[in-house]
Simulated assay, not measured.
Amino acid sequence: MTSPSIPSRGRPARLDRAKTVETALELLDEVGLEALTMRRLAERLGVRAGALYRHFTTKQDLLTAMAERMLGDVQASPEAADWAGRLRALARALRRALLAHRDGARVFGGTHSVGPHTLAFAESVVGVLREAGFGDEDAGRTLMTLVNFTLGHTLEEQAAAAPHEDGAPDDPGRLRSAVQAGPYPHLAATVPVLTSADFDAHFEFALDLQVEGLRRLRSGAEWVLPCVDRGAEKRKAGP
């Protein structure tokens, strides 16, 4: 983090990168991702748009910095006694961090930050798994699965709450009507769940599936993911 500089007489204050990112997140909460432009951010900061490009070459660079800052708010409870509890806590903390900002999941998606907050979160997840006895390959794939699941879930959660062009949020009645009007008896039986806005329950159910799958993977060789040819992975790695 850089410290604010004192402007010389007759010159505008130099932009502070950390303050710029914080202001961008504030503006995101006000106007959403679509309306967040470099020009609009520059106006909020009281500088010309060109001044932003000293810190951020493109808007994508800015979004990556915003994603990195969001993960600075990830705080997982250290009270869980076992690896499964700690893993659940980390997934929930990531979801909370993304939900804390309007369009937070859309900002985070595809940024691939390598900043300290992002790497610290990844280190925590992989550390929990390796310390529990999972191999490096399984720990790495689990990290990707956990992040991708949480991101995808939160994208859908925030999209469902976002107003459409008519100003109203998504109407679950459209799905209900479409299913009931067609030959979809199995879907019709599950419509109450499919149209439920209880995203906490949806998230916890999927998280439990992942954790229980990991328990079985950890328990022994009788349960092996059919999509993974571990021999091929070893051959690829070489001696």
Rank of each mutant, 00 (worst) to 15 (best):
M1Q: 09
S8D: 14
S8M: 12
S8Y: 12
A13Y: 01
R14D: 04
L15T: 12
L15R: 04
T20N: 07
E22I: 09
T23C: 15
A24T: 05
L27R: 14
L28V: 06
E30Q: 15
V31F: 02
G32V: 04
L33H: 08
A35G: 13
A35P: 01
L36M: 08
L36T: 06
R39E: 12
A42E: 12
E43D: 15
R44C: 09
V47E: 01
R48V: 10
A49V: 11
Y53A: 00
Y53H: 15
Y53L: 07
Q60W: 08
Q60K: 15
D61C: 13
L62G: 02
T64N: 07
M66V: 05
M66R: 11
A67Y: 01
M70S: 00
M70P: 05
M70V: 02
V74D: 01
V74E: 03
Q75D: 13
Q75M: 05
A76D: 02
A76T: 08
S77K: 00
S77V: 01
P78M: 03
A80S: 11
A80R: 03
D82C: 04
W83V: 15
W83T: 06
A84K: 02
L90Q: 15
R92Y: 07
A93L: 04
L94H: 10
R95W: 06
A97L: 10
L98G: 04
A100L: 07
A100Y: 08
H101R: 14
H101N: 13
D103K: 02
D103G: 12
V107T: 08
V107P: 13
F108E: 11
G109L: 14
G110W: 05
T111I: 00
T111C: 11
S113E: 08
H117P: 02
H117T: 04
T118K: 00
F121V: 09
V128A: 08
L129C: 13
R130H: 00
G133D: 14
F134I: 00
D136W: 11
D136Y: 11
E137I: 10
E137Q: 04
A139C: 05
G140R: 12
T145D: 14
T145W: 05
L146A: 12
F149T: 03
F149E: 10
T150L: 00
L151D: 06
L151S: 02
G152D: 04
H153R: 06
L155W: 00
E156W: 08
A159Y: 06
A160M: 07
A161Q: 11
A161M: 06
A162I: 02
E165N: 07
E165C: 01
A168I: 06
A168G: 01
D170G: 05
D170T: 15
D171V: 02
P172Y: 03
G173C: 03
L175E: 02
R176W: 04
V179S: 05
G182E: 07
P183L: 07
L187G: 15
A189H: 14
A189K: 15
T190I: 07
L194N: 04
T195Y: 01
S196M: 03
D200G: 11
D200Y: 00
A201T: 08
E204P: 09
L207C: 13
L207G: 06
L209H: 11
L209E: 11
L209K: 12
V211S: 10
E212I: 13
G213K: 00
L214V: 08
S219Q: 13
E222S: 09
W223H: 13
V224I: 07
D229P: 06
K234S: 14
R235H: 11
K236D: 07
A237C: 03
A237N: 00
